[in-house]
Design a protein around this nucleic acid. Structure first.
Lengths: 217, 217, 217, 217
DNA sequence: TATGAATGAGACTTCATTCAT
DNA sequence: CATGAATGAAGTCTCATTCAT
């Protein structure tokens, strides 16, 4: 592997001013997404992406300083999409509703392109990527942190850990659903709700029936 | 990178017949684990493993047809260790206790080598690896399935999905803890318990305090 | 040796679009020919060819998927050269003259680079090479087949077999001459003529003296 | 490739005294023949041969100093078999009959294991093999040389060349027949006779019909 | 002697990246 | 700016041969 560690910044080299360039950048990113979905992490390579994008390899490097920059940009693209919908959560009157909203949005997002989402989730933990992404705001984690501050959420022994845990559970369940090829959003949201509210120690609406069952048993 | 897709079988090439060879195989596997821990997936390559193991590259290929075979073997090694301890779970008198036991064992296992565990969890979902591992018995998932059949576990709408979900949550929380470098087993077990029992709709001992809190709030 | 059996297609990977690339391809092919001549089949390897061609190994793989593809391309190159001259044979008024012409051209061709010709003749029978070459037109065999249809050629019990036999004899004699380092075209052509016309049952001009000898003997 | 050029002698390391060793040597040679037939030159390797022979690789090297020695030994084995039958040719009263006999024996020999014969023919021209084989007596070529000395054979301009040519033609026709999977010995012998006697300028019995045709035409 | 584990040179191949046009 | 040819480090894998047991 010609793992070039030379260049350190993973930011796009130039912000496209003209719309043609924007088009190019967008098509490269989408090509990267498609390659990731069809060939996986190991199949992702710059030449393949350029080819898929219908762009020369030279052009790709014009806009992205390297392979990792592609992944970073893709993550940011997906995050932006997510944030746009997820911020509404903070408008909700209660923590319960906010979390519910967050679940809905997450499920939507992840089920849109489950494979891509899963791979990006994994890549985002790789040091060079994580470093670059650290600055980015409006993460799932950020939102959860804020939601946990609502009054109706039982206080957790350690806020940081609880935040991480909830994020991990949310992602895990939705990824698993994606793997299985699930498409029923409602059912998935319900299960995720059970897990998250269960973790937080909040019975949620659906749990009522379960609890009554337990009493009977 | 020479991503070789040639060979299909990921099974070990030959079973070592002399104890010297057994040593070699063991050291290769351990070297693979160490490389994975220190360099990550991208840093795992047959040369590095052979070097770390102190054997020639040729020896590695005598026993493993390639990189993926190494991962498969490593997974199996870790699974075997896990199963050895986890099977006791089925001796427990109740589902609750069985699940509790499973959590304890999982936490132990994962916290022993958290990075390794996390990477293997990810790799195990890659098609070629998963295919090879499919035959292997005594998975976490198998155990959960059996535990869900206990009387004291509330029936779930879809057993298969519940099983998957519980496995995913368990793994996600323990992986997250590993990432954070957590070492407090008890605390982690407690949180995992909250998530799993919460998902199942079973209040667990620790939830009592939480529930009372909620009443007060 | 890393006998790679992976790739099936032996076709060139990309058609050079710039003249610089055409140069590269040509120099790679010529280098392959030279390596074959100096080191033989066993000495033919992609590294040696790239080195001899003065290009990087990467460049070689841009255009040829592997060693066998090199051989195929080389065969085609030699065939093209041969066909260019040999097609005139079909312009001849008689089968005898046509065959004579074919002999002349074959001798010229083979004596130009005898070692190369001999090795290619052998390689062309290897299944993967033969498969790829099957499509190529204008073979020696094709020409012979057409020549056998002339009126002045005695009918043969099995046309297909006779064609093959004549081709085999022609190649064998010229290869043998090449091995010996013969340079006298005329003498060689005469002997080849004797063998071919003899096989066909046609006395040729040179045979007259021989026949009279036999009578005397 | 670990092309070891160290050892220079390709003779078997030890002449087996005991019959067990003889057995071993024979089985190794036969295994080499089979591998050659099924995998071709490129597929011939010492490990595969040992495996096929049911012998350890160490034992193989006990009897053969290297890979090339295997080929030499195989050639000698085939030659010995050939010579045993072919020497009778020299008992014949005339050159014509001697040559006829030689043809018969050659056809028998080559059609027995056509693929093997063809590959050995080729390998025998490789310098290291040829060097080692040079000493061996009773070659096809030797026999032809002696046959050409008979009175009834028309004198040839250059005896050495004629000898070579006849050998080349003989081998070429029989190899071609082997390639085609021919099994009809008689027909093949007839065609070979036509070619050889034609080359020598001797009408042979079968040519009569052809000659009459020619007169008519 | 026989065995088979071990070795490592060397061949194959990919792909991130640069740069001349 | 775009193109695509070229590069070569780095990784994969084989197999002839040796050597400890």
């Amino acid at each position: 592997m010609a793992t070039a560690k030379k260049r350190t910044s993973l930011k796009p080299r130039k912000v496209p001013q003209q719309s043609r360039a924007e088009q190019t950048v967008a098509s490269i990113l989408e090509a990267a997404a498609r390659v990731l979905e069809s060939k996986g992490l190991a199949g992702l390579n710059t030449n393949a992406v350029a080819l898929r994008a219908g762009v020369s390899i030279g052009s790709l490097y014009q806009y992205f300083p390297g392979k990792d920059a592609l992944i970073v940009a893709l993550s940011l693209r997906e995050r932006a999409e997510f944030v746009a919908e997820a911020l509404d959560a903070l408008e909700q009157p209660s923590g319960r509703l906010a979390l519910q909203h967050l679940i809905t949005v997450s499920v939507n997002q992840q089920l849109r392109r489950p494979v891509l989402a899963r791979l990006l989730d994994f890549e985002e933990t790789r040091a060079p990527i994580a470093r670059e992404l650290a600055a980015s705001k409006g993460t799932l984690i950020d939102l959860i942190r804020q939601i946990l501050a609502y009054d109706d959420i039982p206080p957790q022994p350690d806020m940081e850990i609880a935040t991480d845990d909830l994020g991990a559970i949310l992602r895990a369940l939705v990824d698993a659903a994606g793997d299985r090829g699930e498409v029923d959003h409602a059912a998935l949201e319900q299960r995720v709700g059970r897990a998250l509210f269960g973790y937080l120690g909040m019975a949620n609406s659906q749990n009522v029936s379960n609890r009554s069952h337990r009493r009977n048993a």
